[in-house]
Design a protein around this nucleic acid. Structure first.
Lengths: 345, 345
DNA sequence: CTGTTAGCGCGTTCAC
DNA sequence: GTGAACGCGCTAACAG
């Protein structure tokens, strides 16, 4: 003890008090202090009082970094996002953060960009010894494996792993757009178009699949597909391109809301069409402006809060038991019926 | 060495290789390995090669947690946000993350909610020994002091500290709305209204101040102020309430874009007004829908990317030198002139 | 229930 | 330039 005490008084620039400082002030051993801050420690009420008083006086709280070095649990979860994620569903980060904090975990954020790809980022993640990863990105199989081979559980958000051998939680985009197809058909639509999102966005592909699958089952003739990139402008352009083809159209389903807005504005202000009398328009995501007067867009809302909580739940389960088999969870989207489309019940 | 080696082969469930493992494989000492991964280490090219080869074979990378325990630098920055932050400016998190990663720092996210207030969160932050804090929230003076007294620099984002004794970077909301007031006046407007945001949002107050200040200087008569909460619905309601007062109105400046959208929809669809012929409407933020056909909203864009980079820059400077005096940085907003308002050049 | 002891993995003197 | 020893702050295993 003499050794330690003499040493630590020397520097300590600002650094908060350590468990040794508290121990000395309380007149107990350092390990007694440690135990006071542990969940299931056996400690007498008397010494506990003494320790807590001393701790309060010194503003002491256990150093999480030092603790994690020995417990091999950092209570940190890495969350990977892209710019698209944060733009299209900004609330996901908030919801994940709240869900994680509520369960005693912390969120270390990593944004994928051109200059920092998955490889770089996974390297950083490994160095920080996080307890788990939630990926809102299309993680390359190799990087996924790199985490898992080191015993770090991964949960994919709105993506499905190549071999489905990884946990994932997502919205059932396919099911939702199958339902949309069905309802549009039943309310009399026969001439369909799909304004597609970027090919490298899995959710955009799923939304397309859902629509096309169901329409094929219903034996609806050729469906016009126009490419886009999730942006408003691309929706606008796609709509103009669509009508330039000269085919009859009575329903336009869009890869997301932003494109739907572009399509609606093109329809009304450039093509002179009435919505939904001349053409029904459907989006996906239910962003804020979807419910507003100029659009009143019929769309599908993802249960973001629930998806976040499920992702956290799944991750923690697999942190507890790494041998647990992977779970793939698909949550239904919620249809928001508004004025932009004629939809059967 | 014997002691260490016997020990470490025993468990190691999945855990990655340590510097000892690399040292053994390379036939050098552990400290040689350590030096290889340090910035300015003096090491011979020969042993460096050996070490790097061994490290690659074992997929070794230094444990950031262990490193920070001894260097007293975690390379982690805590970022505090509220739900409003993430909803109104989703890109700020992305921009901060990119700027931080580029400078070798990592972002630990903390969302303030009802159930986890600033006190709780600052407690968590202190336990993780972050190198600094960027607060996109209204931090209570007490919690600010709690960080600073422990030598943790804080940079406020879009807030100004009570005594200005803290670093901050923000958009010049006051200046921007002074300019708006000026231009509206010069283009002939004389009957102004301001649709206010929540009283506890400093940026909303600043926007109001800027407008009222300048109008007072211009000796423009009583300005109608209607309360709101930054939400679309509140803008809609405020606009109706405003016209219910029966006063003449020719310019409506709103606390933010969402409220402006509500106001415009109320004006057009409920009050039968033409924009900008009957009334000019101005917003703030330049969110995505502002430029779209139905709105074409004249508004002010905050230089979010630059603000993020500046916040990171300021923070790192103060991490390097804690004695550096605080800097308050105000960046100009960018006026986006569109069709919703008649504005002088 | 308490104190003592031994590391977690690494960066850093200090001899050689 | 290199290796041995030490300790960052803490938890865990053990004896009493």
């Amino acid at each position: 003890m003499t050794r330690k005490t003499t040493k630590r008084d020397s520097h300590k620039p600002f650094g908060s008090a350590t468990s040794y400082d508290v121990a000395r002030l309380a007149g107990v051993s350092q390990s007694a202090v440690s135990r006071c801050f542990l969940p299931h420690a056996s400690i007498s009420e008397k010494t506990r009082k003494k320790v807590m008083a001393a701790a309060a006086e010194l503003h002491y709280a256990p150093n999480a970094i030092a603790r994690s070095l020995i417990t091999r649990r950092s209570s940190i979860v890495a969350v990977m996002v892209t710019e698209t994620t944060t733009r299209v569903t900004p609330d996901i980060l908030f919801e994940l953060n709240v869900a994680l904090l509520r369960r005693g975990m912390h969120l270390l954020l990593f944004s994928i960009t051109q200059e920092r790809d998955h490889g770089d980022i996974v390297g950083e993640i490994l160095r920080y010894k996080v307890d788990g990863v939630i990926a809102c990105t299309t993680m390359p199989a190799q990087e996924l494996e790199r985490c898992q081979s080191r015993g770090i559980p991964v949960v994919l958000y709105n993506r499905i792993a190549p071999g489905q051998n990884t946990c994932s939680v997502g919205c059932d985009h396919i099911g939702a757009n199958r339902d949309i197809a069905d309802r549009l058909y039943r309310s009399g639509h026969r001439h369909f178009a799909f304004l597609a999102g970027p090919a490298d966005a899995p959710v955009a592909e799923q939304r397309k699949q859902g629509l096309l699958q169901r329409l094929q089952e219903l034996a609806v003739g050729p469906i016009e597909v126009v490419d886009g990139d999730f942006g408003y402008q691309s929706g606008h352009a796609a709509m103009l391109a669509l009508y330039a083809r000269g085919k009859p159209i009575d329903a336009v389903v869009c890869a997301n809301d932003d494109m739907a807005f572009g399509a609606m504005d093109a329809a009304r202000y450039a093509l002179g069409l009435r919505i939904p009398q001349d053409v029904s328009v459907v989006g996906f995501d239910d962003v804020a402006s979807a419910e507003r007067a100029p659009y009143q867009l019929t769309t599908v809302r993802q249960p973001v809060g629930e998806m976040a909580r499920m992702a956290v739940h799944l991750l923690l389960e697999h942190i507890e038991d790494r041998a647990k088999p992977p779970v793939v969870m698909l949550l239904p989207g919620q249809l928001m019926r508004r004025q932009s489309a004629l939809l059967a019940d």
